[in-house]
Design a protein around this nucleic acid. Structure first.
Lengths: 131, 131
DNA sequence: ATTCTAGTTTACGTTAACGTTAATGTCAAT
DNA sequence: ATTGACATTAACGTTAACGTAAACTAGAAT
């Protein structure tokens, strides 16, 4: 129960350096506990958080943007006004993600069209060789 | 006919600096013509190419990756073997894009779930206030 | 011909996101 | 108690992708 991880556990699991993990802490993205002796101890929550960070990175969000997004969804926003603000901001961010998805799908289609073109050319070459 | 553009034309249109455009040339991403006096002249093709570069940037490809992808789809690959290689590489790249899209859709869903949660909380607050 | 705007190269500066090294400490196992 | 693997902080180094400044040139407009 209440599984914990060392810094190199997580580094291994996510295939990143320990330096990277420490850097994320330095930038305020993670806040692990410490042992008596001062070594970092990561909880399941920390691990999840790290996974989120890396996912954010994978499609080009900066650490600053990621910090914004995660904090937004992470805190106990009990006040009503805070909730409203959070929801609004969240919708905006989701819109941005949606836009990026659309954009990438457009690229994908462009690439597919080009590929189709190349394949037609290849077919024509094949046809000629058969004569 | 055969419309051309100055460097600042394109900078204005795509909202980037002229320095950026020159840098892309330095890195071998664009190859504009020159006037007698040495000023850069961009064709429609160059403009399209620039648009592709910027699109690539927008979802986190590095300039090196972009150079690879664009060159792949840009040259006259008339040889059959070249065509096959190009098509294979293209399929791989499309796969990568596809993966990114899936990844982003997962993030979007995660965000939407969280938002839903927040909205439920807000509703509960509203309910209590009515009593 | 001159003026003005926009263009050129060269070169040094900047920021984010880590890499790397050094000097030292912790902890589990023998 | 001593080893060995892993941990710590501090600080300097590195790379990509430009920004910025200087010193100069081209081309359009008056």
């Amino acid at each position: 129960m209440n599984q914990t991880y060392s810094i190199s556990d997580l580094a291994r699991e996510f295939d990143i350096s320990t330096r990277t993990i420490r850097y994320y802490e330095e930038r305020g993205l993670i806040h692990p506990d410490r042992t008596e002796g001062g070594q970092r101890v990561y909880s399941r929550k920390d691990r999840t958080r790290l996974r989120l960070i890396l996912r954010g990175k994978r499609f080009g969000f900066s650490l600053d943007e990621i910090v914004e997004m995660i904090d937004m969804f992470d805190q106990d926003r009990s006040g009503r006004k805070q909730l409203v603000v959070t929801i609004d901001y969240g919708k905006k961010k989701i819109g941005e993600v949606e836009e990026k998805i659309q954009d990438m799908m457009a690229l994908k289609k462009e690439m597919e069209d080009l590929l189709e073109d190349f394949e037609k050319r290849l077919d024509q070459l094949r046809g000629r060789n058969k004569l």
